[in-house]
Design a protein around this nucleic acid. Structure first.
Length: 289
DNA sequence: ATTACGCCCTGTACGC
DNA sequence: TGCGTACAGGGCGTAA
């Protein structure tokens, strides 16, 4: 599912084709994609504006707008499970899953398509406003061991659940959390606040490495849903060590990858590489099934 | 404060 | 073949 590496891939592929383009109109094909904003306000905010350089914070895409020389807010997009963007010529046949069309100058349109309709587009007065409820970006260079220790310090929730909490740290989803925890040799049920400085340093380094690596391979595709704006699948799934590998052999030892449910999420780990925490370092949350 | 659960959705995988 | 059902999951609202 689109997490930070997939969203970063989308951002980098959209930035160039969109920068400097004027918005001529908006067509809403599924109104709930606009959520509380509503199609009318969304169109009002966009039409006549010029798009700046696409930004990203966590899993949120940000498209700054300008009118004349003045900043005119942003529109933002969250892909959730199956949201996608592509740019195509105007007048092309509307796809079954097209939800919102943003008509650009030069006879092209930015298409937001989304099979499961969970994705959301919206507007905000500024990038800062749009991301105010989010924690720091997980790929930001400033996320070192000390910064991570500050974010996790004192928290009694399970490490995995804490890393999935976008208000703590923005960008990681189910895949990259499980992949990072395996590489850092940390059990998902560790109490977040129980990590030693050394463990935080390792985890921060691993998160950066995994994200960097996944971005370099355009993210992960393991079903028909995630495709880049250029229409290609990502490649990082071939480097998965735990995600979806239930019953298969660990890539780091002879043990077998396990699966359980933690906080309503499928969770994969290696019981040898990621040993169960001592009672004093265990969160109160439990695996299910 | 923390955790659970339902909701939003639809394609896919499975059982019979 | 073809139907019915469970399941996947990010974020949010609400309940316990």
């Amino acid at each position: 599912m689109p997490e930070l590496p997939e969203v970063e891939t989308v951002r980098s592929q959209l930035a160039r084709p969109l920068a400097g383009r004027f918005i001529r109109g908006v067509t809403v094909l599924w109104s709930r994609t606009l959520g509380a904003t509503g199609g009318e306000r969304f169109a009002e905010h966009l039409v006549g504006a010029r798009i700046g350089t696409a930004q990203r914070h966590g899993k949120l895409l940000l498209f700054p707008l300008q009118r004349g020389q003045k900043d005119a807010g942003v529109f933002h997009a969250h892909l959730r499970m199956t949201g996608r963007f592509l740019v195509r010529e105007c007048g092309a046949t509307t796809g079954l899953w097209d939800r919102v069309l943003v008509h650009l100058d030069g006879d092209e349109e930015l298409v937001f398509l989304d099979v499961r309709k969970f994705g959301r587009l919206g507007i905000a007065s500024s990038c800062a406003k749009a991301i105010e409820t989010l924690g720091p970006d997980a790929w930001h260079a400033a996320l070192d061991g000390a910064a991570l220790a500050t974010l996790l310090g004192g928290r009694r929730t399970a490490l995995k659940s804490t890393l999935l909490d976008q208000s703590v740290l923005a960008g990681l989803g189910n895949i990259y959390v499980d992949e990072s925890l395996h590489r850092a040799k940390l059990h998902p049920l560790r109490r977040a606040g129980s990590l030693a400085d050394k463990e935080c340093a390792k985890l921060a380094q691993v998160i950066h490495h995994v994200l960097e690596r996944a971005i370099s391979r355009s993210g992960s595709s393991f079903d028909a849903f995630y495709r880049t704006p250029e229409g290609k699948p990502g490649d990082f799934q071939s480097e998965f060590r735990v995600y979806g590998r239930h019953g298969k052999r660990c890539r780091g030892c002879p043990d077998t990858i396990r699966r359980a449910v933690l906080g309503q999420r499928g969770t994969w780990w290696c019981p040898s590489c990621q040993p169960s925490p001592r009672r004093s370092e265990m969160a109160s949350a439990r695996f299910r099934r």
